[in-house]
Nucleic acid binder design. Structure first.
Lengths: 150, 150
DNA sequence: ACACATTACATTGTACACAATTTAATTTTG
DNA sequence: CAAAATTAAATTGTGTACAATGTAATGTGT
């Protein structure tokens, strides 16, 4: 085993580890803000799609969020129990489940409005740094989804 | 609700979402490589620390990996069952649990040696882009851990 | 010395995350 | 049109993550 092998297997030389840790810690930082809305982070990003689209089937939601039905089915049932969304089978295709936002779900958006700014101060990057990070992340995401079919 | 509120709550304008998705998809891309070693991603990064340090208590391991005992205890028991590590109480402080790498764990490193290069081609960034991403991620991680105590 | 606080790890409970499988509905094909 | 293939969700099983709590060992302050 040569030196390069040793170095490459060090945690500090990985790109994946800071990505993993950063994602986890940032989601943890969201928690106190999201608790006020009775949402978890995954539920929050699902609601974000619903605030924008009003209505969406599970397949499309999964493609947008990079999540499968094994994650979404129980999560959407919880959001339905909280009254933020409705779940109904499509009339034209009984296989498809249409998720629609409720009045109560729309109201939640007003409470959520303060979250992005609070979280921005938490990340605390210069505007140009945030843009660079954003673009690099989407580039990697694109490379990953090109190579691995989902 | 004004326009800025609407825009700020769009998924595409978040920094956290691509971070979350990218981390998740990259870990998913690791899976086929790690299956050959009978490791999950979290087990892999724990082994990375062990390959470097040979011996480490749970507290230190948790600080390095940003994980707590609730995650590490069952994970380390699994790695012990696979024979890659040993778990023993410290003689000088019975509270501390010392994790040490085994012969078998050391051997696993040779099989793992090919993984970093395979994954690098998967991420597929220019060297300078990878460096920029790396630095920005550690900057955010630093900002997050300054603000939130762990 | 000894009550009290602190520390290190383990346990419990909730919530993802995803591979693999199942089920029911819809499409495709011979 | 009927059998076969495909599709969309749901289900099952394994493995994290983490907050909150429990427990035993160690420090500490008087």
């Amino acid at each position: 085993m040569d030196d390069s092998t040793n170095n490459e297997l060090k945690l500090e030389n990985q790109l994946c580890f800071p990505l993993y840790a950063c994602s986890k810690e940032l989601i943890r930082a969201y928690k106190p803000h999201l608790e006020k809305l009775d949402l978890t982070y995954t539920q929050y990003i699902a609601m974000m799609v619903m605030w924008e689209k009003k209505s969406c089937n599970v397949k499309t939601l999964g493609e947008i969020l990079f999540l499968d039905s094994g994650t979404l089915t129980p999560l959407l049932k919880k959001l339905e129990n909280k009254g933020y969304i409705e779940r109904n089978r499509s009339k034209t295709d009984e296989r498809a489940l249409i998720v629609s936002i409720t009045e109560s779900g729309e109201k939640l958006k007003e409470q959520a409005a303060v979250i992005p700014k609070s979280m921005g101060s938490c990340v605390d990057l210069e505007p140009d740094e945030a843009v660079t990070l954003y673009m690099l992340l989407y580039k990697v995401l694109g490379n990953l989804t090109d190579k691995n079919s989902r």
